[in-house]
């Protein structure tokens, strides 16, 4: 095992972590500001991926596809908020879980109805395909590197948005005291729709970016959604900083565990059983990590009060 392989896997872990951050940021914002648990966030990821695949199919332009994914997911998110979600803010978590689970059924089956059950493919554009040489002699796929950079740029933009802009002030004020900022004359329902659409757009972009590596299919958002839940539970619900820390931790653990656990087990087991035992444990690793963190800090790394 060489250090190049290790570095490559660290980059892969970073890439997964960044994509998880794009998902988790929306979830944690929506929870922090509106107090809503949204299971249908994975559907917005799927909407973004399908919109990108469809637009790339029509126009052949990857850039237009990315823009389409942002627009479609933001529109779907705004629509979802206006029609259903805003009736749920005052409800208990059980109603929120059920209503958003119902939305998943509607979105998944609706997409299957529109696009069929076969996966679509979104191709990496030629100017982003192929490997690139990094310092230290690593050959790494250019596209994955681009994803990491886009993700980091968006993370930075999001932090600036929340720390420095008027909207950001309103979002933070909304987390702290909803009634108060409504009393101060902020149009709270417009703010809610905006936050929801912003989270949706991030999820949709993540779907499109990952869709070019994997296939675009119905139900693709759900494994990512659950990982994003693990991320915000680890990071602390409502905290963007926590979402970033949690996302990187989960991305690294999952990627490195999947590669290195079987090799670790091979040191003291025969290869076949090491491969299967390693794979089994690796698939459970992030949940074990989550359980361990909860034992120490029940409200997550950056969570104040649950």
């Amino acid at each position: 095992m060489t250090y190049i392989l290790v570095l490559e896997q660290i980059l892969n872990g970073l890439q997964l972590g960044i994509m998880l951050f794009l998902m988790a940021a929306g979830l944690t914002l929506v929870f922090g500001v509106m107090g809503l648990i949204n299971l249908a966030h994975g559907s917005l990821y799927m909407v973004g991926a399908f919109a990108a695949a469809a637009v790339a199919g029509w126009t052949g332009s990857f850039l237009l596809a990315l823009i389409a994914s942002l627009a479609a997911a933001a529109a779907a998110g705004a629509l979802m908020e206006l029609v259903v979600i805003r009736r749920l803010y005052r409800r208990d978590h059980l109603d929120q879980v059920l209503a958003t689970f119902a939305l998943i059924l509607i979105f998944s089956e609706g997409t299957r109805w529109l696009f069929g059950s076969f996966p679509l493919f979104l191709d990496v554009p030629s100017y982003l395909s192929g490997p690139v040489s990094l310092p230290g002699g690593i050959e790494y796929p250019l596209y994955r590197l681009t994803i990491i950079l886009i993700g980091l740029a968006i993370a930075a933009g999001l932090f600036l948005l929340i720390a420095r802009t008027r909207i950001g002030i309103q979002i933070r004020a909304g987390e702290a005291d909803r009634e108060m900022i409504a009393a101060l004359g902020v149009d709270i329902s417009k703010l809610y729709t905006l936050v929801f659409a912003l989270g949706a757009a991030l999820a949709g972009l993540a779907g499109a970016l990952v869709g070019a590596i994997q296939s675009v299919q119905v139900g693709m958002g759900e494994p990512v959604l659950i990982l994003a839940f693990v991320v915000i539970v680890i990071g602390g619900i409502g905290s963007i900083k926590g979402a970033l820390a949690g996302a990187l931790l989960v991305g690294m653990t999952d990627t490195l565990g999947g590669v290195f656990l079987p090799q670790l087990f091979a040191l003291f087991m025969d290869p076949a059983s090491a491969a299967s035992a390693g794979a089994s444990l690796a698939s459970m690793l992030i949940y074990i990590l989550m359980a361990a963190i909860l034992l120490v800090r029940p409200s997550g790394l950056y969570g104040g009060s649950a």
Partner: peptide, 23 residues
């Protein structure tokens, strides 16, 4: 934990067993 953490954690443990069964 309680509230929304409880929902997500039970979901995550369920998923853990799901992936374990797959592998």
């Amino acid at each position: 934990t309680s509230g929304v953490y409880f929902i997500m954690i039970t979901l995550a443990f369920g998923q853990m067993l799901y992936y374990f069964a797959i592998s």
